[in-house]
Structures are given as C-alpha cells and as structure tokens.
C-alpha cells in the first residue's frame, strides 16, 4: 500500500463521518413531517404531487396496504419502462434513430426490472448505443429516482415500527415516496450534477459527434444528458451508467475529484439513515452502533481489497518485472483500472459500490486479483448491509440486528429485545424468510446456469450451454456466473465482466433474481415493521442487552459475516478461493 492511497481512504472515511449527522438529522425531520430549510423552496412541489394524485397526506396505511402500494407502483413502473423501450423508434428525442431491434423483448424485460428494483444491471452493451434520450431520461433516470425513494420509504416504515407503540399503521408509502424524492433525492442530485459538470461531466441533448482520429479513422463520440443521470445514479445507489464503461468513462467520471465525490454520493444517504434511525427511535447511540458495525466491515473490506490489488499478480513479479509502486509507476495490478484513478481509488470504489447496492464501477472487477475480486463478491453476499443501498442498507442491517439479538437471547435464555421491542417468533421468522429467499436465488440460479445445456443457436441461449457465455474457464468462469446472480439478487447491478449475459436465458433468470432480491427481501421486513408497531415498548432493565455498545457491534458484525460465510463459503470455494491458490501454483484462468 502507498501512503497516498492510505490518505485517500482515511480522508474519505473522515468526510463520510462528518456528513452523517447533518444529513441524518435532516432526513429525520423530513420523514417526521417537520419543517426543514428546503420547505419554503419545495413544499409547493410536494403539495402538487398530492393534489395531482389524490393522495391524502394525513392518511396512514397498515403494513399490507403499504406493501400493496409499493407493489402496484412497481408494476406500473415496470410496464412504463418496458413500453418506452420497445416503442422508442416511434417516440421523440431519438436523434440516433435507435429502433425496436436495439431492444429485444427479453432485454426490455431485464432492463425494466433492473431499474424498477434499483439494481441497474445493464445487460445491453451501452446505453449510448441502445436507447434514445427519451428512454434514458423518462424510463431509466425517473426510475433511478423513484426506486431509490421507494427503498428509503421502506426503511423509514421499518424505523417507525421500532419507534411507535400499539399502532396499526406504519406511515403512508405515497407520502414517504414523495418526500424522499422531493426533499432528498432531487436537491442532492441537482447539486451533485452541478458539481460533476464543474469537473467535466457532460450534459446536453446533441447528436453524437463525429471525429477523425490521428490514424485517419472515423470515431463517433457519444453525447447526452450524462450529469443529471450520473448524480442520481450515485445518490440513489442505482449504479447504471449512461455509458457502457460506467464511471470509468471520462465523460461520466473525468477526474480524481469527481471520483471522490461520486464515492461520497454513494454512501451519504445510507450512512445518514443510520443516524436517522437513532434520532427517530429516540436514542442516537443506536444509530451510531449501526454506523460503527458498518464502518468496521467497510474498512476490513478496503484493507483486504487494496493490499491484494497493490500486491498484484505474483506470477508477473516472478518473471522479473517490477510490480512495486515507485515514483514513476503505480505498481501492483493495474489491469482493468483507469490510470487517472490508480489502485487505491479503484479498490476503494469497488468496495464502496458493492457495500452499497450501487453497482457503478470505475474499473473492471473481473480484472482484480482473486482476493481483490472476492471482496466485492462477498460484500454483495452479506446482503449489502455495509451502509448498503439507499434504504435497503438500513432495513438489511436491521434484519441482522434482529437475528443478532435473537442469538444473544438464546445464549442467555431470555426473550430478546431491540429498541425496547420484544423480538418474538414472527420477527425472527420474517427475518429468516428474507435471508433464505435471497440466498436461494443466488445459489439455485448459479447452480442451474453452471449445468444447464442448450442447443447451439437455440432461442434461450444461442451460444449453447449457459457456461458457454463465460470468457474464462475453471473457477474464474464459475465466479463470473456466481457474481452475475449475486449482483442481480443483491440489487447491486455491477458486472464482474467476462460473461455475455445478453441472452434470453440470462436476461430472464437475472431479471427474476432481481425481483426476488428486492421484493422477497423487503416484504417480510415490512411485516416486521407492522408487527413491531403494534407492540408495546418495554422498559429497560438490568437484564436488557445493551444494543449501543461494543459487544452488540461485535455481535452484529459476527452475525453478518457468519451468515454470509456459512451460506456462501462452498460457492466461494469453487470460485475465487480456489483460483487464488491455483494462481500461486502458477495456474491462471
């Protein structure tokens, strides 16, 4: 590791720590219906939404009604995104004349699901060569806002479950969705887009520019409304880039400073929501305990990934090539990384984007060393609770907090409590349902794709067997399939690379994995919210397990890691772990 790399990591964490409380306190005010400094500017817009849609601001919902509203909203979002893609040839804002053949039905399905579930897995080769500006803006960017807002709404509903007592309702999905969009995502994205523009991110509706290279060849330089999509892509932890190269593209992420800002934008809401949790349940120490657990896991991930990448491939140094960092070269493993970012900023970005359910990339994870690549993979497998996606990270770590206090309760033979609520059969059943649904999706789809045969030139997979779509053999090829379903189920959306997933088989099954990972994970947690809201708060006694101290933080981290390790260790052993040992024996894939 280099001192400059370490400074980048430390500065990043300190800035994150500094912004957590202000943004968290602001969100607590927004979702408690209190006035904020943005109300004079934006309250009219919130009211306009209610008037236009007939939503009553004072009408709250039971958890099933809340879930019904979310599901109906998502169905509508899916249908709109699907139709816009398939009909783009007949719609305006299409200067490149992209047609229906650019978007097959399976690709439209995958993309619509991907953006509705806040995943932004991009099965297409690049938005700049597939979608019109209208699709990019009205289908993809709009979903970036509302799917992120929906995730925040669910987290707020779960917080209310802990904060309330003897109530049947957990808030209104429509009001939470509107407030998350109007007071949080819109202003943050607006400011973020302006800052990114200042760094050179483009924002226009121009036709693509033709250029002649020094070799005399013609090159098409894509244009478009990039900054506006880029900002919400990060703030909403969506991750779907305007360009296929995502945040490695110089028009999306031109400078080391824009890279730093983008990394900060990914964590700002998830980190702040942990403070919001503490604030809304009346004990900010509870929020800081979650923050401490997430920080610990985040730093462990960074300090496994970064040294692995900085060490590079031992086979190259055995050939007598200098792989250590010097004044004139970064050393280590630079394959698949942008020279303007280097190893530390690429390893940090990869860790952050997979801790959160963002999925933006500034380097190719497929080109990481086996251990460096294992970190992003394992981060997603933890359920993306290391700060996590907007809303999804908080309700994910609260799920593990429920499991952790349940385990602690079993150890001492006492009914577990968390934030003054007794954790009983219903809560534990729901938490385990969420864990099992996501694990089953990852492992079952991966296992099927590792063995399923198809005829060459068949509709489902024209390349033949599903394993024919990977570019590498052995454990690396297996890791590519495992990563695809892990990324889809975890609603991350980042691609390991090295797999051609643009076939009906992968589009359909990864699409289903995204739906399972989103809805079969959050619906049980909404049930937990409803169950907890109806309970009385019990008084703290000397026998109550304190959930704001180091012991709880350790137990929570242990639960996350152990559940992840026990569930996925066999699969990881067949992929990056065995690949790491084979690499040291001189065999690479």
């Amino acid at each position: 590791m280099t001192s400059l790399g370490l400074v980048q990591i430390v500065v990043y964490f300190l800035v994150l720590l500094a912004v957590t409380k202000p943004i968290g306190a602001y969100m607590a005010r927004v979702f408690s219906g209190q006035r904020t400094f943005l109300h004079p500017l934006l309250r009219w817009l919130e009211v306009l939404f209610y008037k236009a849609t007939g939503v009553r601001e004072d009408l709250e919902q039971r958890w099933t009604q809340y879930a019904g509203a979310l599901l109906s909203f998502s169905v509508f979002g899916f249908l709109l995104a699907y139709v816009l893609q398939r009909a783009q040839a007949y719609l305006p804002l299409n200067p490149q004349h992209f047609g229906t053949p650019n978007v097959s039905p399976d690709l439209a399905f995958n993309t619509a699901v991907s953006f509705v579930t806040n995943t932004n897995w991009q099965s297409y080769s690049g938005g700049e060569s597939t979608f019109s500006y209208l699709v990019q803006m009205a289908a993809l960017t709009v979903q970036n806002f509302v799917s992120g807002a929906a995730g925040i709404a669910i987290a707020i509903a779960l917080i209310r479950g802990f904060a309330r007592q003897q109530m049947k309702t957990i808030g209104s999905f429509w009001v939470d969705l509107t407030r998350a969009t109007v007071y949080l995502l819109l202003p943050l994205s607006f400011v973020g887009a302006l800052v990114l523009c200042s760094q050179g991110v483009i924002q226009n509706l121009h036709p693509y520019t033709g250029a002649t290279t020094v070799e005399g060849k013609t090159q098409t330089i894509a244009q478009g409304p990039v900054a506006s999509q880029e900002a919400i892509k990060m703030v909403g932890t969506n991750g779907g880039g305007f360009f296929g190269a995502n945040s490695a593209h110089p028009f999306e992420n031109p400078t080391p400073l824009s890279n730093f800002i983008q990394m900060l934008m990914i964590f700002v809401i998830p980190s702040g929501l942990m403070y919001t949790f503490g604030k809304m349940v009346g004990d900010t120490r509870q929020g800081w305990a979650l923050f401490a657990a997430a920080s610990l896991m985040f730093l462990i991930g960074v300090f496994v990934c970064y040294p692995a990448e900085q060490s590079g491939n031992p086979l190259i140094s055995r050939m007598g090539i200098e792989t250590s960092a010097t004044d004139t070269q970064p050393g280590g493993n630079m394959e698949g990384k942008e020279t303007r970012f280097g190893i530390a900023a690429s390893a940090l970005f990869a860790t952050i984007t997979t801790d959160a359910s963002c999925g933006a990339i500034n380097g190719q994870h497929d080109s990481f060393t086996p251990i460096g690549g294992l970190v992003p993979l394992f981060n997603i497998m933890t359920g993306e609770v290391i700060f996590g996606g907007v809303g999804a990270g908080l309700y994910g770590i609260l799920l593990f907090a429920i499991v952790a206090v349940f385990i602690a309760g079993l150890m001492v033979g006492r009914t577990p409590e968390y934030i003054g609520k007794k954790i009983e059969q219903k809560e534990v059943k729901m938490a385990m349902l969420a864990v099992i649904a996501t694990a089953a999706s990852i492992l079952v789809f991966t296992a099927i794709s590792a063995v399923i045969p198809f005829d060459k030139n068949s509709y489902w997979n024209s390349l033949g067997a599903a394993t024919a779509n990977v570019n590498n053999g052995g454990p690396h090829g297996f890791a590519e399939i495992l990563y695809a379903y892990t990324s889809g189920t975890g609603n991350n959306g980042s691609a390991f690379g090295g797999i051609n997933a643009a076939t009906p088989w992968y589009n359909l099954t990864i699409g289903l994995a995204m739906l399972i990972g989103r809805f079969l994970f959050l619906l049980p947690l909404l049930a937990v919210a409803g169950s907890l809201a109806a309970k009385k708060r019990v008084a703290t006694t000397t026998g109550t397990f304190p959930t704001h101290g180091g012991l709880f933080v350790g137990l929570l981290v242990g639960t996350v890691v152990i559940v992840g390790a026990l569930t996925y260790f066999p699969a990881l052993s067949l992929g990056p772990i065995v690949e790491h040992y084979l690499m040291h024996q001189g065999k690479v894939f």
């Binding site: 879930a67 599901l71 229906t100 097959s104």
Partner: peptide, 30 residues
C-alpha cells in the same frame, strides 16, 4: 414472434407481482 414474446415477458413480471401480493397476505397471517 415478437408480440408473443412481449406478452410472455410482461405476463412473467405481472405474475411475479401477483405472487408477491399473495406472499404479503401469507406473511400477514403467519
């Protein structure tokens, strides 16, 4: 072929959401 495929994929998605609603009701009763 394409309109049939469009219908196929739309139905798959709608079926998932219907199943999710049934799952919600089941969670409520559990």
């Amino acid at each position: 072929m394409s309109p049939m495929l469009d219908i196929f994929y739309i139905i798959i998605a709608i079926l998932f959401f219907v199943a999710s609603w049934a799952f919600t009701k089941a969670c409520d009763k559990l």
